[in-house]
Every structure is written in structure tokens, then in C-alpha cells.
Write a protein that binds this DNA or RNA. Structure first.
Lengths: 146, 146
DNA sequence: ATTAATGTGTACCAAAAAGGTATAGATTCG
DNA sequence: CGAATCTATACCTTTTTGGTACACATTAAT
């Protein structure tokens, strides 16, 4: 029940980019976050492909946010790296959970999982990058309202 | 961001035990849940060691719930199998997150992770076994109130 | 045009975690 | 006693995670 290390780094990368005035090259981002350049680059590629981060190739190129911090949720960043949020395999659409079969008793949990999942997902959606930047107390307020 | 398959099975095992009139042997539980007996036994041992399930050895022995379904939360079952709920390594007490070091900027996320974690944990704590048994709508109500 | 600085794409690899199995032993009922 | 049942430890295989390597494409500056 944990986001991957890669997703954790991605959050920090996006945070660093949000605080930067100009575009930053991979090396600078890596240094700021404290991860190797190679691995940073791998994460950055996923962020670029998703449209969250923009890149400029060539000499004096680099990376910058493609969207405003208030539009970027933690859920989005985590899902770009880790894929859809699913607290149980049972929620995976490509997995034939016993709900569709004989043993109905076994999937009493399907609905429960779904509700909890939605609830967690909503929470992560509400925490945007700018709320993290501005102050942590606002995160507190936001979460208490869900 | 997923509970393990083992924790998923544990939930179903506890659910089956809650619905049983008498104690059940490992084989019967395994059949009811649809998991191999060996693996079921492995999970049952953890549940017994935690005090959630009681066991009787010897011929005509078996397993039963040691507590009332209304006292058993999903969080508890999941934590027995998967360990403490931590959405990021950063929250692990044995991990030296950069909050305790130089690069203060890097752990802006510590507080945020902590809040979200608490919030998820509270949700799983509120969903008790009996609320799952009685009807799924009650789960809906409970979750909407958190 | 050339070259150095930078991002891109694909493939690969090692360590850790998850998922599951095997075997030997201890306990209790009948 | 002996069959049924739980207990304990160790082991194994597959998948996921975390990370690296290398060849290539693009651009800015000269």
C-alpha cells in the first residue's frame, strides 16, 4: 500500500520544476532532487509523454512544467508513474474477479474496495501542487473537507 | 498503491469465519475462499498470532474469530498481513528521510504524505467487518462521513 | 557546416518483494 | 495408540522495482 519510489521522485521533480524560473536541464533537476541523472531522465520522459512537463531538445534545452501548479494534482503525478490507483487486484478491469462468476460470496469485497478506492483517489486529486507549495496547512484544510 | 494478494485473501478468510457457526478447519476455509490449503494456512497463522483468530489444535480442531465482527476493521486485517500502512517510504521510521538532514526543500512532502496516510488509514479503520457483512450500503454511508 | 550540449528510445540487468510450496514436528480427540 | 489437525521454519519461483547502458536525434552557438 505504497506509491513507488519512482512516483515519489516524480512528485519531487515536478515540485522542483514548479519552483524554477526558467527551464532546467536534467542534471540540475537530478541534483536538486538527489537522484541520479539517468533515473531522473527516465522519470522525466514519462512526465513529458503524459503532457505534464514540456521539454526542449538540443543545446540549452531542458524541462519545464506544461501546466499551472494549481491544475496539477498528486493523483495525476502518481498515476502517470504507477498507473491507475487500485487498492486491490479485484478492481483491475483486466482481471476476472469472481464477481462475474459463480462464487458470488467471494466478492463481497468488490463494492467495498471500489468505494474506498474512490475515496482515496479523491483525496489525492484534491491535493494540488500549489497547495503543497503555498503552505502545508492548506493541505490540512483540504483533506479535512473530503 | 495496492494491498497484497495475501491481505486480500486474509479479508476473505476473516469474512468466511465471521459467517461460520462453528470453528472451521483449514481445508474448509481454503475451499470457501478459493485458495490452496497451504497458502491459507500461512495466512491463518499470521491471523492467529495477531490474536484476531483463535485456533484449536488436534483432531476436530480448527479456526474461529477471536473477536466480534464489529470490532474488526479492514485496516487491522490489512496491517496484520502487510505491515503498517505507509503510502511513502518517507514515512517509515527506520528510513532517514531528508527531513532530518540538510536538504530541507526535498521533504516538503513529508507532512503531506503524513496527512494523506492518516486519512486513508482512518477510512480503512472505519470499515468494520460487520458493516461489510450487513450490507454494502452501510459502507457507503460510513465512508461518506469521513 | 561543425561540434558540443542536450533530450529520446529501447533494451537490459540486479535486487527485492510477492506469491506460493515443502517438510518435519507438536498437539489433541476418539 | 493413531489419525486429524494446527505450528514452525525454510525454501523456491515469478513479478515488480529500481536502476543502468548505449546508440541516436535535435538544437544552439560558433
Amino acid at each position: 500500500m505504497r506509491i513507488t519510489q519512482e512516483a515519489d521522485y516524480a512528485l519531487r521533480i515536478v515540485y522542483v520544476l514548479a519552483g524554477a524560473e526558467n527551464i532546467m536541464d536534467a542534471k540540475s533537476i537530478a541534483d536538486a532532487v538527489g537522484v541520479t541523472e539517468r533515473f531522473t531522465v527516465k522519470i522525466l520522459r514519462k512526465l513529458v509523454q503524459s503532457g505534464l512537463v514540456s521539454s526542449r531538445k538540443g543545446a540549452s534545452g531542458g524541462y519545464g512544467l506544461a501546466e499551472l501548479p494549481e491544475k496539477i494534482s498528486m493523483r495525476r503525478i502518481v498515476e502517470i508513474i504507477d498507473g491507475p490507483l487500485e487498492i486491490s487486484r479485484c478492481l483491475d478491469s483486466s482481471y476476472e474477479c469472481s464477481r462475474t462468476g459463480h462464487n458470488k460470496k467471494c466478492c463481497t469485497f468488490h463494492l467495498v474496495f471500489d468505494k474506498i478506492n474512490r475515496s482515496i483517489s479523491d483525496k489525492l486529486e484534491c491535493v494540488t501542487l500549489d497547495s503543497v507549495i503555498n503552505d502545508s496547512i492548506s493541505v490540512n484544510e483540504i483533506l479535512s473537507k473530503i
